[in-house]
Nucleic acid binder design. Structure first.
Lengths: 209, 209
DNA sequence: ACCTGAACACCGTTCAAGT
DNA sequence: ACCTGAACACCGTTCAAGT
């Protein structure tokens, strides 16, 4: 018996949360965090925007899932017994993993406390500090400094890359104010030698911690 | 001689950059940073969105002008000779001044290096550190810790206020992971006792600096 | 010189309908 | 059960037109 309806029966597109999330990650990789939307993901999947609403409650939930996926795939904290080098090692790998996903660092800066995978990394950094007798708010302040350093560098580097020009404002923004102390920072945000400057700041940071 | 044309002559709306910027600041105060747009400002002014384009190049320039205006009106750094108390004093006043403008702290977190008024405050903090013999990247790291602490607290407090609920994720987000080190932080982001927790973290931070 | 209006390409989302 | 389509309220912006 041939089921005649089998030929005419409507076929589902085969969506599910993991497919949607993976597509979202791809969209971020190619169009940046701000390019992530219900419509852009739907287009990439070849479906109507509304098709996604069966798997995610709204655009915010879609973004959360994509963010979680990207951060979960990023570097985990490793412990070798040397605090400074462990922190620096993680920071380098974390930066490298965020780089292919422009804009994610900036978003993480204001949303890390809502991202489980980010909390895992902060927790691991705190555990690392605890191994060396650093506890309480001092540990929070120190690990947070490393964590936000990576995020801010990533975002600053993205902005500079996108603008294609040296940041004018850190040097002289036309206000006439010299800001001589900021010159230290300026060289670290205004040139294309990203890796060297990242290293310089990182070392100063983990040496203090 | 009565100029007959005076009665029929078309009247300009009397726009200029400062009026637009002030209106933009009001819009942010009442609808938050994300509520700021060319259309929302134009509506508040009773003009067409396109009327603004004679005074600002695009939406980004409008946002920059509004941000600059808000930060320029915020607390300036004061020096009394006591580094820890000067840092804490500025942090408290800065937080108080950002609070009426929801979302500005979060945006500042990723855009402070493009905001002259923010750079002025960072420069002043660096100068403060220099007065006490703290120079170079160590000064940058320490003052940045205080600066970003205020911004992150403001944003976290805004999110909690907006959600109207205790942040679930810092405690237990359903992943089953205990994250015992993060419990320290949790109490600082999950209750409504904003002022007390802000003080606790701030003191730990400036004591280290 | 200064502002309007229509139009276009986006965005999220609701609701009714289709298979 | 799963997806589409039309519709609505937003967003930025271009371009031509009005006074």
């Amino acid at each position: 018996m041939v089921d005649i309806h089998a030929y005419t029966r409507w076929m589902p597109a085969g969506l599910d949360l993991s497919v949607i999330t993976r597509t979202g990650v791809d969209v971020v990789a190619s169009h940046g965090w701000d390019g992530l939307s219900t419509r852009s993901v739907a287009t990439a999947l070849g479906v109507t925007p509304m098709a996604l609403y069966r798997y995610v409650a709204d655009a915010a939930e879609l973004r959360d899932a994509v963010l979680e996926s990207i951060v979960a795939a990023s570097a985990a904290v490793r412990s070798t017994g040397d605090l400074a080098s462990d922190l620096a090692d993680w920071a380098r790998r974390f930066r490298r993993d965020l780089e292919p996903h422009p804009g994610v660092a900036a978003h993480l800066l204001i949303a890390w406390f809502d991202c489980p995978a980010a909390l895992d990394r902060v927790e691991s950094l705190l555990a690392l500090a605890a191994e060396h007798g650093i506890e309480g708010f001092e540990a929070v302040a120190r690990t947070n400094a490393v964590f936000t350093y990576v995020l801010m560098r990533c975002e600053a580097e993205r902005v500079i890359r996108a603008a294609g020009v040296v940041r004018r404002s850190l040097r002289d923004d036309g206000t006439g104010r010299p800001r001589r102390h900021l010159r230290i920072l300026a060289s670290h945000y205004t040139t294309a030698r990203f890796d060297a400057h990242f290293e310089f700041g990182l070392r100063a940071l983990v040496a203090a911690a």
